[in-house]
Structures are given as structure tokens and as C-alpha cells.
């Protein structure tokens, strides 16, 4: 646990000292949304709700993939070897997952704010939408962190990250889109209860897989 916290602190410090990466991601979010906005040539709020919803999650998926794909090659191989010498692989993967979940949640919230600004706001139940967004960020980060560990071993190509990650993340993405549609329509929370439970269960499956599989990944 102490290791976990130390690793997490290290990740945050590293990010804070190399702020260009974070700034880069923020700019990525803003310009992607702006490209979408101009491509659809919208007057604010004129987009259909299903398109609005799907587009938001697709943008967030790409943002998360780009942000997480760098999680293993930021540091040199030698230094990684040093960490692995000091800590368990489980601590390393969990620290990365927690850290990525934080980053993706923050990026997701900023993405939502800017998206609402330019694309209009059809959301009736903002609380549920934000809750769903945070659950989704945790899910994205836990799934994609393991995938990024895999691609790092295979030469870290962006193509590989996408083709390995996207089909696997689909069950998660579909549930998220469903819940956020409920939030937009302002349905009572009890209608989304099942989906939120499934989302929680999926996150548990992914975390368990990461916990079991990452040590093998590391051994090479």
C-alpha cells in the first residue's frame, strides 16, 4: 500500500513537472471538439440527441486512448526496470490505473464542459451524466492501461493500441452510451441501475484481469 501511494505520487509529480504533455492533451480535447463542431456545421443545439451522445463518447474514447497510450513509454526502460526491482507488478499496474483514471476523469470533465459550450446542452440530469462519466473514465483507464502495457512490449505502435483496445472496450462503451442517454432524457436513476451495476461488474472483471495478467506481461 505504501508502495502504491509512493508510485502514485511519483506519477503525479512527473506529470506536474512535465506539464507539456498535459497541456498537449487539453489542446487535443479542444481541437477535436472544435473540428467536430465545424464539420457538423451546427448552430448550437441543432444536433440530434443520439448523434450528440455518440459523438461525445467517441471523442472521449480517442482522448482516453491517446492519453493512456503513453503510460508506459514516458520513462526509460532502465528506470522501469528499477521500479520493478523495488515493487510488485500488481502495485505498478494499480498505480498506473489509478493515475490514468484521474487523468481521464479530469480530461473527461473538461471535455464535457467545452462540449456543452459549443454543442449545446441537452442533458436533463447532469448528476447522473457526470457519475457515468467518472465510472466510464475508470473503465477506460483500467482496460486501456493493460492494453498499453501489451503494446509497449510490441514496439508501441498507435495502430496496435487502437486495434487491440477498441473491440475490447466495446461492451463498456455501449453500456456507457446507454446510461448517458438515460441521463440526457432525465429518466429516474432506477432505470439506469441495471446498467450501472453491469458497468461496475465489467470494471471488476477488467481489474481482476489486470491484477492476474500484468505480472506475466512484466516478466519479459
Amino acid at each position: 500500500m505504501a508502495h502504491l501511494l509512493a508510485l502514485l505520487k511519483k506519477e503525479l509529480l512527473l506529470e506536474w513537472r512535465m506539464r507539456t504533455a498535459l497541456q498537449g492533451m487539453l489542446l487535443y480535447v479542444v481541437s477535436t471538439i472544435f473540428v467536430c463542431y465545424l464539420s457538423f456545421r451546427l448552430k448550437t443545439g441543432a444536433m440530434g440527441v443520439p448523434t450528440w451522445n455518440a459523438l461525445f463518447w467517441i471523442i472521449l474514447l480517442f482522448v482516453a486512448t491517446t492519453a493512456i497510450s503513453k503510460s508506459f513509454y514516458q520513462e526509460s526502460a532502465n528506470r522501469q526496470f528499477y521500479y520493478y526491482f523495488l515493487c510488485n507488478p500488481e502495485e505498478i499496474i494499480f498505480s498506473k490505473i489509478i493515475y490514468n483514471a484521474l487523468v481521464v476523469s479530469v480530461l473527461g470533465l473538461l471535455c464535457l464542459a467545452f462540449y456543452l459550450l459549443v454543442m449545446g446542452n441537452p442533458i436533463a440530469d447532469l448528476g447522473l451524466f457526470v457519475l457515468n462519466l467518472v465510472v466510464g473514465s475508470v473503465g477506460f483507464s483500467s482496460t486501456l492501461t493493460l492494453v498499453s502495457g501489451i503494446t509497449q512490449k510490441a514496439g508501441n505502435s498507435t495502430t496496435l493500441m487502437a486495434i487491440l483496445g477498441f473491440p475490447i472496450i466495446l461492451p463498456l462503451l455501449l453500456m456507457l452510451i446507454k446510461v448517458s442517454r438515460n441521463a440526457i432524457d432525465g429518466l429516474p436513476w432506477s432505470d439506469s441501475q441495471d446498467e450501472l451495476l453491469v458497468l461496475g461488474a465489467l470494471n471488476m472483471v477488467v481489474l481482476a484481469c489486470s491484477y492476474i495478467l500484468f505480472p506475466y506481461l512484466w516478466r519479459s
Binding site: 482496460t143 493493460l146 492494453v147 501489451i150 512490449k153 510490441a154 487491440l164 473491440p167 475490447i168 466495446l170 461492451p171 453491469v198 461488474a201 465489467l202 472483471v205 477488467v206 484481469c209 495478467l213 506475466y216 506481461l217 516478466r219 519479459s220
Partner: peptide, 17 residues
């Protein structure tokens, strides 16, 4: 080893799908 890791992970996600 790496493809085995992916294979197990992928199957674990295919089932809920």
C-alpha cells in the same frame, strides 16, 4: 507470452459482450 495475455483478456471481455 504477450499474445497469451491478450488472448485471455480478450476472451474475458468477449463473454460479457
Amino acid at each position: 507470452r504477450i499474445s497469451a495475455v491478450y488472448n485471455i483478456f480478450a476472451f474475458a471481455m468477449l463473454i460479457p459482450l
